[in-house]
Design a protein around this nucleic acid. Structure first.
Lengths: 350, 350
DNA sequence: CTGAAAGCGCTTACAG
DNA sequence: CTGAAAGCGCTTACAG
């Protein structure tokens, strides 16, 4: 009943322990005859390599880095908190993870951050990326040193990363549109949209997905040209007030980007009925606004799920084995009724 | 830079390895003086116990059982698939998990299933539970043998399980109501509801949550008394047809229970415009119906997330340590635009 | 191409 | 109450 070990396999195959090990791990320098015998024994006994023992023996330590933009953005604060908490937990499993700050959304700064990583001997790094050619050379160098690189939240140039963990922002925009459309119940309407910057790929994609669905499935609705906000709460505040007061009779607001605090403040202070409101990312103030009935929907990318996945995928890539079955990642819809509890982790009872 | 080991701690504390081990693991029979010295050394060196090494040394194998109702219910098929896939992956980590069948939703059958577990030497079991006193004695016996018991999807009597992994069904019903309400855009409406059985606690809770929100926040809407379906597709088919044809002018349908195939068929064949439709659990046919535009929303409990959590929580409880940071569990809303990919697990690229 | 042996960080008898 | 030693299943030099 006990699982067969490598020495069981070696014995069954009639070779030494070391030889069995060589074929299990494809270390080469083994006669074909021995390979065949070992393979047969593995299959017959149902041998499964004990990863924990292997890691112990080779003193495996997973050194991970997370490159995260600095700044007071609530979403990235949330990501950081999850990384720290997860890193702390996995210390006992030989994982050393740290957050490396890079100044926000500048390709040059990000490139410099990556260059700094090169000689620091990490096994894997997760990077909140950008689509910039500037990053390609340093990323290739990292990879050539055997460092596993993945994109997190925002993708890196495809050729130089092993995986991307983040939502599809076109899907996120489509989802926002579907629900906004539903909320009009077939009636007419005008939707005011806000974007931080059209250069930000995630913003552009969300807006595109949104417009696609409205155009295709809600012919009674019009999407007004987006107002540029630079993700600045005060810009959003101003823009929201003017959208609310305009005689265009706006029936819905959709903010593709950040800065929601300004939008929420403006709505909270407005008198009378308000348009249907959709924003992205569940953080303190957007959650509160949902609870207070100032906005209707929050489309969220579940940074907790993303971080969870990042650790699992990095580990799997470093070990060159398949990742465990993980929950899928997709834009998640929150209304005021299905909000998560305050605590990060509280299923268990005392 | 290398992490301190227990022998570093022992040396620093001036005691033997074995003594250090005794205080780390609270094995008792240690002089207070030694305890203090070891504690101090642990704190000073920042010692973290290596769980993998400990498990290796004691040949730890986690024997897990999942008690799942039999039957062709698509939701439980999905749960089973996730359990099997996860179990397979974790074989390499010394986890042996198996599914134990119990015939569906009979307290007697479930009790017998639990009794059968008692001498089988599991470390942890996850049970799709029922609220029945019948279960208490066998569950206590299991617990007295040191087996960790958790409720999965549907809770067990609270006193005899260590954790519950499942959504809050009141929240699920409230969420369905919020979106159904939104979809009326302030206009009037009548909502036909369907339940499998009012004895099923999850059904009753969803219905209650649904009615609460409609009554509180959507005064223009009426919830019609639920039609009992026994979760039988043909019953649902019949009931849906009559709801669609009735001159009550139903504006929305909400099925609290299973059997959606019948509802979907009926809607697919109906001519003209249809009411707003909300069902539970994303499985093959509900996903297809969403894609085809036959229904509008699916509220899902993410069995993949639940299974993932179940493995992690069982392991943590068995080891008596804190579980890793895990994604929260809450009712998830699907529209046709944010559906997960077909595959169970496909973030990585080849 | 093959094998014997030490060691990874722990736990578990066993002997004092 | 304390310690020395074997062993968990593997990897890694090292010697042939």
């Amino acid at each position: 009943m006990a699982s067969p070990t490598l020495s069981d396999v070696a014995q069954a195959a009639g070779v030494s322990y070391a030889t069995a090990d060589r074929v299990i791990n494809n270390r080469g320098n083994v006669a074909q005859k021995s390979i065949d015998k070992v393979r047969e024994a593995v299959a017959r006994l149902g041998y499964v390599r004990n990863v924990a023992a292997a890691n112990l023996s080779r003193k495996r330590v997973y050194r991970l880095a997370f490159l995260i933009p600095t700044g007071s953005n609530a979403f990235f604060r949330r990501i950081r908190a999850h990384i720290l908490q997860t890193a702390d937990h996995f210390k006992a499993d030989g994982i050393r993870a740290q957050i490396v700050d890079v100044s926000a959304f500048s390709a040059e700064a990000l490139r410099d951050g990556i260059v700094d990583l090169i000689r620091r001997d990490f096994d894997g790094v997760a990077i909140v990326g950008l689509q910039s050619q500037l990053l390609e050379t340093p990323l290739e160098e990292l990879r050539d040193q055997g460092v596993v690189v993945i994109g997190l939240v925002s993708d890196l140039p495809q050729g130089v990363r092993s995986a991307y963990i983040g939502i599809d922002n076109i899907v996120a925009g489509r989802t926002a549109a579907r629900l906004t459309g539903m909320a009009h119940a077939g009636g007419p309407g005008k939707i005011q949209t806000f974007v931080g910057s059209m250069e930000a790929r995630d913003h552009a994609e969300r807006l595109q997905g949104f417009c696609d669905v409205i155009a295709a499935d809600f012919p009674n609705l019009t999407v007004l040209p987006p107002i540029l906000t630079k993700d600045d709460p005060s810009e959003l505040h101003r823009a929201t007030i003017s959208a609310l007061s305009a005689d265009t009779r706006v029936t819905a607001l959709y903010n593709v980007g950040a800065g929601n605090r300004g939008l929420i403040d403006a709505i909270g202070k407005a008198a009378g009925s308000r348009p249907f409101c959709v924003v992205h990312e569940l953080v303190g103030h957007s959650k509160q606004a949902l609870t207070d009935g100032h906005i209707d929907l929050v489309i969220d990318q579940r940074p907790d799920v993303e971080v969870n996945r990042a650790f699992a995928i990095l580990r799997a890539l470093i070990d060159d084995r398949a990742p465990p079955p993980l929950p899928d990642l997709m834009p998640t819809i929150y209304v005021r009724d299905n909000l998560p509890a305050e605590t990060l982790n509280d299923t268990m009872e005392a």
